[in-house]
Amino acid sequence: MVIEVRPAEVFDDLATMVGPKRPDANVCWCLSYRIPNSLNRELTGTARGDYVRELMREGPPGVLAYDEGDVVGWAAVHPRRDTSFATNRKIPHVDDLDVWSVWCLRVRPGFRGRGISHQLLEGAVAYARASGAPAIEGYPVDNAGQKVDLTMAYVGTRRLFERAGFHKAADTSSVLNGFPRVLMRLHLD
């Protein structure tokens, strides 16, 4: 299996990972951290996918993993200033650096357990670096090796980020699935 990770430039490929099975269903579309809460609540059904299509005109909203042309994974990555992390009171800013954030890592069922999340995180780092980011942050759970519920595993684990070269930059007051989240950072210059 040769996994290729590249910027998410094809809407239908992105929809495979973050869109609903029914076009009118209300699913995240990975917008929860990307747009203000009021707009996130306002967008329903097909309006969510339409909004993502518009966002993609500004540039790829993250990276996708492909296995022989099939989409198998997704990582949301974007400048923190354009996300809700810019104003999040539970996730601190450690300095004024114009960092990028990676906040969602998803691997399709049937492809999990093959290291694709590691490749997605590496691809997110490469995309941020190529886009001129001085550093990249993630906000994974610090689960100390305990099992994380699959529905809450999208933020990643501290160990995943450490393996990618990130270091703990700060504690947060955010908790997900009973686990504290930590701010992990990797300098890119």
Rank of each mutant, 00 (worst) to 15 (best):
V2W: 14
I3E: 15
R6V: 07
P7M: 10
V10I: 15
D12W: 13
D12Y: 12
T16S: 10
G19H: 09
G19W: 06
N26Q: 08
N26H: 09
V27C: 07
L31Q: 01
L31C: 00
S32E: 04
I35H: 00
P36K: 02
P36F: 03
L39A: 01
R41S: 00
R41I: 02
R41T: 00
L43P: 01
G45A: 09
A47K: 05
A47I: 06
V52I: 10
E54W: 08
E54Y: 08
G59C: 06
V63D: 14
Y66S: 10
D67V: 01
G69R: 14
V72L: 09
H78Y: 13
H78K: 13
R80K: 13
R80F: 10
R81L: 12
T87A: 11
R89L: 15
K90Q: 08
P92H: 06
H93L: 12
V94S: 09
W100D: 12
W103I: 13
R106V: 15
F111Q: 15
R112C: 10
G115M: 00
I116C: 10
H118L: 10
Q119V: 12
L121W: 05
G123K: 00
A124Q: 02
A124N: 05
V125Q: 04
A126P: 10
Y127C: 07
A128S: 01
A133F: 03
A135H: 05
A135K: 05
Y139G: 00
N143I: 01
A144M: 13
Q146A: 09
Q146P: 03
K147W: 14
M152P: 00
Y154D: 11
R158P: 04
H167V: 15
H167W: 12
A169G: 10
V175C: 01
L176Q: 04
N177L: 06
P180T: 09
M184Y: 11
R185D: 10
H187W: 11
H187E: 15
